[in-house]
């Protein structure tokens, strides 16, 4: 197995872990954690394709990842603020309880 394959397998596992967390967890914070895991799996792919791709000497992959990390940090801030707002409204952070926007 080439290192690229190993990286991709690892990142798929990480992505699946994150996806499972998002799908089955009811705590909004843990769902956010799952989203972060999925993001980082994507980051890992960037790095892997860059490192084992045609131009590993140039910094493309790192730049992508730094941008993705910055966006992820902003997203975490907004997400946690949403969680706090959710907690203010319903005194818990269960996603199942937050369905006031149903049709």
């Amino acid at each position: 197995m080439s290192p690229l394959q190993a990286c991709l397998l690892f990142s798929s596992a990480l992505f699946s872990l994150g996806l499972i967390a998002v799908l089955v967890r009811s705590n909004a914070i843990l769902v956010l954690l799952g989203v972060e895991l999925m993001l980082n799996a994507a980051n890992l792919n960037f790095i892997a394709f860059w490192r084992y791709g045609p131009a590993p000497a140039e910094g493309h992959g790192v730049v992508f990842v730094v941008f993705a990390l910055a966006v992820a940090a902003a997203e975490a801030a907004v997400g946690l603020a949403l969680v706090i707002a959710l907690h203010r409204h319903q005194r818990n952070v269960r996603l199942g309880d937050a369905r006031r926007l149903h049709g």
């Binding site: 996806l19 998002v22 799908l23 009811s26 769902v31 996603l95 199942g96 937050a98 369905r99 006031r100 926007l101 149903h102 049709g103």
Partner: peptide
């Protein structure tokens, strides 16, 4: 009719997405 699919349940949406 369509509104019935909008359950408001975030988990449901993610399941559909998946």
């Amino acid at each position: 009719a369509y509104a019935r699919t909008q359950t408001g349940d975030a988990h449901g949406y993610v399941w559909m997405l998946a």
